[in-house]
């Protein structure tokens, strides 16, 4: 056995040696080319999306990255990297893996504030540098079309007459839960819950008569809500695509949730890189094609610069923390 092993090692070393020789010839030119370029960006920028591909955060990132590449607003392409898992912990680990040089950034939403408010994952807002917001969208509350109540007022009255008589489909500790809790606090009612951790679950439970109220993104409602009835919209103003759905503020409840598309870099990323990326993003969000896509999908196209976005986020985080304390 021992001799076998010694021979094995000799064989390994010799085979590896041959392979190495082959490798140096292929790798050297790459190393040379990296030393030459100057000015940001010199190589592709990795954009980390903390979800599997296909969701809103992912699609928006890809559209914008495509547009920037098409128009040449950055010298190098932006490459989307999907890192799902761990309430964003995996994505943030990826973000912080290299130097904060602007070549690895992240595209997320205010869900990051949820993770922070719920103390999931070991990160805080100070770990990030905000690049800016490229628009966003608001959700709405929907009930079944054949339900006896047709408006938020009727739902509130029903719940006040018989507390906990209606079932709300939410993922406990997720955005739908928080928004529902804020509204419930404002209006002074209480619902029962049923676990629904995705839009698909909420739709399935609501349509199947296993839940009475659920939260949807406005775009989901537009395409899938044939048998649903939207009763309240949580945007600042009414959505142009849904002119008949009142906002919560109009109805007298101070609940607003505008979930933005937020671009983040690790803290310590140099100004030059942040400004360059922000410039490209701002151009992209003002591009007619992107505006058209946003409007069709009930998203609002707008640009908010990094610092304003960070201030807004801090305010929102404050109010989320109060809700988190109450519901835990």
């Amino acid at each position: 056995m021992a001799r076998d092993f010694r021979r094995a090692i000799v064989r390994t070393v010799s085979a590896a040696g041959i392979a190495l020789a082959a490798l140096t010839t292929t790798c050297l030119p790459q190393l040379m080319s990296q030393a030459q370029a100057e000015g940001f960006p010199e190589k592709p920028i990795r954009v980390i999306v903390p979800f599997k591909p296909g969701g809103r955060t992912d699609v928006v990132a890809r559209l914008i990255a495509d547009k920037i590449q098409e128009k040449g607003w950055l010298e190098q392409p932006m490459v989307i990297v999907n890192a799902d898992g761990g309430a964003g912990a995996n994505a943030i680990a990826q973000l912080q893996r290299g130097e904060p040089d602007g070549y690895t950034i992240m595209h997320w939403s205010h869900e990051i504030l949820m993770s922070i408010a719920m103390n999931l994952g070991n990160f805080k807002l100070e770990d990030f540098r905000s690049i800016g917001l490229t628009g966003g969208g608001s959700p709405l509350w929907a009930v079944r079309k054949d339900a006896p109540y047709k408006s938020l007022e009727e739902v509130v009255t029903a719940l006040k007459e018989k507390p906990r008589s209606l079932v709300e489909a939410v993922g406990i500790g997720s955005i739908p839960h928080f928004i529902g809790a804020m509204l419930a606090q404002e209006a002074g009612f209480e619902t029962r819950y049923v676990t629904a951790n995705s839009n698909a679950d909420r739709l399935r439970l609501l349509l199947g008569n296993n839940a009475d109220i659920a939260l949807f993104a406005a775009s989901e409602y537009v395409t899938q809500g044939k048998d649903l009835n939207a009763i309240v919209y949580f945007g600042r103003e009414r959505s142009p695509a849904l002119p008949d759905v009142p906002t919560a503020t109009e109805l007298g409840y101070n609940v607003v949730w505008a979930n933005p598309n937020w671009w983040l870099a690790p803290a310590g990323t140099p100004d030059e890189a942040v400004q360059k990326i922000a410039g490209a993003l701002e151009k992209a969000i003002n591009d007619p094609e992107i505006i058209e896509y946003f409007k069709q999908n009930t998203l609002d196209p707008y640009w908010t610069d990094g610092e304003t976005a960070m201030t807004e986020a801090q305010e929102t985080l404050g109010s989320l923390r109060t809700v988190a304390e109450r519901i835990q």
Binding site: A8, I9, R11, T12, S14, A15, A16, A19, L20, L23
Partner: peptide, 28 residues
């Protein structure tokens, strides 16, 4: 590429038939 090559060569050596040629083939 480097790590994979070495891994393959090593596995070839641990598991392969007792011939240098096999190890090299597997390394390549």
């Amino acid at each position: 590429v480097l790590a994979t090559t070495i891994l393959m060569a090593a596995l070839g050596a641990f598991l392969g038939v007792a011939r240098l040629r096999t190890a090299i083939t597997i390394g390549i």
